[in-house]
Computed example of a mutant assay.
Amino acid sequence: MLIDFTDKRILITGSTAGIGLAAAKGFLAAGASVVINGRTQPSVDAAIARLADPAGRVQGFAGDLANGEGCEELIRQHPDFDIVVNNLGVFGPQDFFDTPDAVWETFFQTNVMSGVRLARAYAPAMVKRGWGRIVFVSSESGLNIPADMIHYGFTKTAQLAISRGLAKRLAGTGVTVNAVLPGPTLSEGVADMLKADVERTGETLEKVAADFVRAHRGSSIIQRAAGVDEVANMILYVSSEQASATTGAALRVDGGVVDSIA
C-alpha cells in the first residue's frame, strides 16, 4: 500500500510534541504540506526545527485553540485544509470530588470544543470539493473511563459522539470523519508523568512505562506503552485515499486494553 499525500494541506492541532509531531513527520514523508500548532511561538519554532523539512512544507500557528478567539485567528490565517487532525488535548489525574468546575471547563474547551469549532469551519469547503478527512484523537479512556480521570474520560467519550454524529451529517459527501483511540502511549507528557518513578527506580523509561501499563491497564495485550509513531500510523491511514470506506469509526490503537471483540 502506497499512501501519498502530495498536494494535500493538513492541520494537526497540539502538534509540537508527542503523537501530533509524529503524525506531522509521517504526513511530510508522504508528500503533504502541514500546519502544526502549539500555544507558544518558541514551542512551534522548536517543533518546526525538529521536523527539519528542507522543502519548506511546514508552517506553524502559535495560539491557544481552547478558546474561540484562537480558533478564529487560525481560520483567518489558514482558511482551508484537506485534512484536519484534532489532536489537541490535556490530561491529568484528579479525584472526582477534588475537581472544580473550572477544571471540567478547561478540559471540555480544550479537548472537545477546539475540534468542534475547527470541524465546523473547515468541513464545508471539503464538502464542496467532494473530498476531505477529519480525525479526532480520542482515547481508550473514552470507553474505559478511568476512576482517577473522570473529567478526562468524559471529554474523550464526547469526541466519539461528535465524530460519529458528524460522519452521519456528512454522509455521501466524500468527507470522512473518524476517531483514533490511543491507549497508554509513551509521549513526552507521559514521560514527564513517569519521570519521578524513573529516577526513583533507576529503570529505563520504557520499563517503567510497561510496569505502569501492567499495574493500571492490566487488560493490555501488548503489555507495554505504544510508541507515538504506532499511533501516528493509524492517523495517517485513516486520513488517506485508501481509507475511503472508513467513516464514523472508533479505531483503537490501545494495545488491546479495551476488553472487547467489537
Score class of each variant (00 low, 15 high):
158 A>G: 06
173 T>S: 13
152 Y>H: 14
166 L>W: 15
164 R>C: 06
140 E>I: 01
140 E>N: 05
145 I>A: 11
146 P>M: 01
147 A>M: 09
141 S>T: 13
146 P>W: 04
151 H>N: 10
160 L>P: 04
140 E>L: 02
168 K>W: 11
141 S>V: 05
173 T>W: 00
163 S>K: 11
153 G>Y: 10
145 I>R: 13
143 L>D: 13
161 A>D: 01
141 S>K: 03
157 T>D: 09
153 G>H: 09
173 T>P: 03
152 Y>T: 12
170 L>N: 03
168 K>P: 10
144 N>G: 02
148 D>M: 04
148 D>R: 11
144 N>P: 06
164 R>W: 06
150 I>P: 14
170 L>G: 05
150 I>G: 00
152 Y>I: 11
154 F>S: 13
142 G>T: 03
168 K>S: 09
145 I>S: 11
147 A>Y: 11
165 G>S: 13
141 S>Q: 14
148 D>N: 12
162 I>Q: 09
172 G>K: 00
164 R>A: 10
163 S>V: 04
165 G>M: 02
170 L>V: 01
158 A>L: 06
157 T>K: 04
167 A>V: 09
146 P>S: 00
156 K>T: 11
173 T>V: 12
161 A>Y: 07
164 R>M: 09
150 I>E: 05
142 G>A: 02
140 E>V: 00
165 G>V: 02
158 A>R: 01
157 T>N: 06
160 L>D: 06
145 I>E: 11
154 F>V: 12
165 G>T: 03
164 R>E: 09
163 S>A: 14
171 A>W: 10
150 I>H: 02
172 G>D: 02
161 A>G: 15
145 I>V: 15
141 S>E: 12
146 P>R: 01
155 T>R: 12
152 Y>L: 05
156 K>Q: 13
147 A>Q: 10
149 M>E: 15
149 M>F: 14
159 Q>M: 14
164 R>P: 07
144 N>H: 12
144 N>F: 08
151 H>E: 04
143 L>N: 06
162 I>M: 12
163 S>M: 08
170 L>A: 01
142 G>Y: 04
143 L>Y: 00
167 A>D: 10
158 A>F: 02
159 Q>R: 11
157 T>Y: 07
140 E>S: 02
168 K>C: 08
151 H>M: 05
154 F>L: 03
168 K>N: 12
144 N>C: 04
145 I>K: 08
151 H>I: 04
167 A>H: 11
148 D>T: 08
153 G>C: 07
150 I>K: 08
146 P>A: 00
158 A>K: 04
148 D>K: 08
162 I>R: 10
162 I>N: 13
146 P>H: 02
155 T>P: 03
173 T>H: 05
158 A>H: 03
166 L>K: 06
147 A>N: 07
163 S>Y: 15
155 T>G: 06
169 R>I: 07
153 G>D: 12
143 L>K: 00
158 A>C: 08
156 K>L: 08
157 T>C: 05
165 G>R: 07
162 I>S: 07
172 G>P: 10
167 A>S: 13
170 L>M: 06
169 R>G: 03
153 G>V: 05
147 A>I: 04
169 R>D: 04
169 R>K: 07
173 T>F: 01
168 K>H: 15
153 G>P: 07
155 T>L: 12
171 A>L: 09
163 S>W: 15
155 T>C: 10
155 T>K: 04
173 T>M: 05
167 A>L: 09
173 T>L: 04
140 E>A: 01
171 A>Y: 13
